[in-house]
Nucleic acid binder design. Sequence first.
DNA 1: CTGAAAGCGCTAACAT
DNA 2: ATGTTAGCGCTTTCAG
Lengths: 340, 340
Amino acid sequence: MKKSITVVDIAREAGVSVSTVSRVLTGNAKVSESKSIAIKKIIEKYNFHPNALARGLINTKSNMIGILAADIRNPYYSALFVSCENAALERGYNLTLFNSFSDRLKEFELIEKIAQQRVDALILLGGAPDDLVTDTEFADKINIISDSIPVLITGRLDGTNCTRININNQKAMSLVMEYISSHKHLKKVAFAGGSSKVYSTSILRSCYKNLLRQYGLEYIPEFDVQNNRYDDDGGYEAMNTILSNNTVPDVVIAINDFAAVGVMRSINEHNLRIPDDISIISFDDTYISTLVTPHLTSISYNYWAFGETIIENAIRLIDGKEVPPELLIEPKLIIRDSCR
Amino acid sequence: MKKSITVVDIAREAGVSVSTVSRVLTGNAKVSESKSIAIKKIIEKYNFHPNALARGLINTKSNMIGILAADIRNPYYSALFVSCENAALERGYNLTLFNSFSDRLKEFELIEKIAQQRVDALILLGGAPDDLVTDTEFADKINIISDSIPVLITGRLDGTNCTRININNQKAMSLVMEYISSHKHLKKVAFAGGSSKVYSTSILRSCYKNLLRQYGLEYIPEFDVQNNRYDDDGGYEAMNTILSNNTVPDVVIAINDFAAVGVMRSINEHNLRIPDDISIISFDDTYISTLVTPHLTSISYNYWAFGETIIENAIRLIDGKEVPPELLIEPKLIIRDSCR
DNA sequence: CTGAAAGCGCTAACAT
DNA sequence: ATGTTAGCGCTTTCAG
């Protein structure tokens, strides 16, 4: 491990002062053509890169954005992270990623850690901001952090002034219901999985009930199974519950792709066919939706634009610009093979 | 955004010098009980945290480890990342993550960027080090980087002295073959997917051939389909090719879980049953293996230990300690329902 | 045990 | 256009 070379070394070899070197590095001031070229050559020669720490120290800016995600192993978050990364890189920012696994203690701990790292902004992807009713202790913590850096979240965090970037869930459910109602044979509509304590899910569920009425479809309580789960086994259980009734639904809305997979398993085990006997629509449109057979008709979010919106606004905030309190990501329905 | 408070502020309020404050911060020297308590109280009061940038600048150490992964959306990498994160956090390090999507240009660019960020070590998860024959230009680049920080990789990078952490692929394939040979009805063994240009795959494939012979099983060239792919459609195509022959294999080894899903799709479409007609064994044991029905019998790696080994050795290297040139992660076979 | 002071590598006034 | 200098916030000799 050899000692890394500094502006002083470059300056000495070029026979100029450090500030001249700094000037060609930043491009913030004029430097004579000849010196500039000479300096660049030496920089090249030694593969020199200015120390980001020193730079960060001087303008109290690290060019790092901290991301605290619920779980990067979930394709929803990894898709979002990747698009954030892309947007950040394009704008000269790096990302440092942490996972809370939705463990409140870990969230507190990591937020502390990230703030200490002197990131320029903090982004919370899921976790505590997913709660329908805000953990006030958590909100307090965020309020302390957001005194020094902007904090952006997906979800809500009442009592804070975090910028919220959310999926337009109303729109998402309307898309689903519009599609269902346009298929006259789809009468009995079930909804499987999710938790009433989760903000986005609660929106989805209330829209589900309202729209059902609006489209003249019956709301059947037995077909609305809320079991606090978002995984395949949760979908499986929910569907088993639904199918334990006397009647079979025409279509089931699964809270996400994972739940949809479980729903499919249950349907198959009941010797029913998809989509001939039961249609399925899911949320999130992760790669899971095309991994299964039949491919899932699913609500998609344009993760690309989603991440870009998050990062773009994080940087606006870093730069001291104004940003609306909430930004909505418009969903669309991707029609595949799971609906008849 | 209020100006963040510094050691100077703390020192002033405590009526001591900054060095005393620094001493209680680092714990590297004795401070009188009374002053120490007073200082800690003030630190607490203001929720003060030393600026990581300034700290990093002074000991030329950022406590950040850079990870360049091929694609975090792949469950193999996200599982690995999460375990790396856990191990790093436990040891006082943070991770900064980048994705190359196995694009060579992007890899060059990002490596540059990471090095500039003054990470204490660089970890390459897949990408260029996956190549069976090393890209010498890439190796050159890595050699420059590894002059200043340790570089660890999964895979190989000939002509560099990177520490390699790899899965024991020989062992992995023996486990598979041992299992197959212990089932007397499993005679015709197919292998689907993967690329001969990938280091790990080439090991797997040569072991497949050797062990077949060793166990007295026939190597059938038509059953060995190499198509440079690692996704479900790749598995699907490979299996279609295999099934285009006159005979049907008893068991197919899929290069990973994704390929296995495609293999299953193909088998189903041929109206064959799993595992009654054809058994399947896959590599990687990601969550995909329990998402599908039947659950996949799969080679698993203990991602937890995998990540821990990577980080542990990265830190050993950072601390100037010796580390063996290659470390092997021992696989095991998780038996589920895809084999008869 | 404590304080003064130097300096990590860089940038941005401030001179010239 | 270029050099000199003063820090950014912290740790660490070096004195005392």
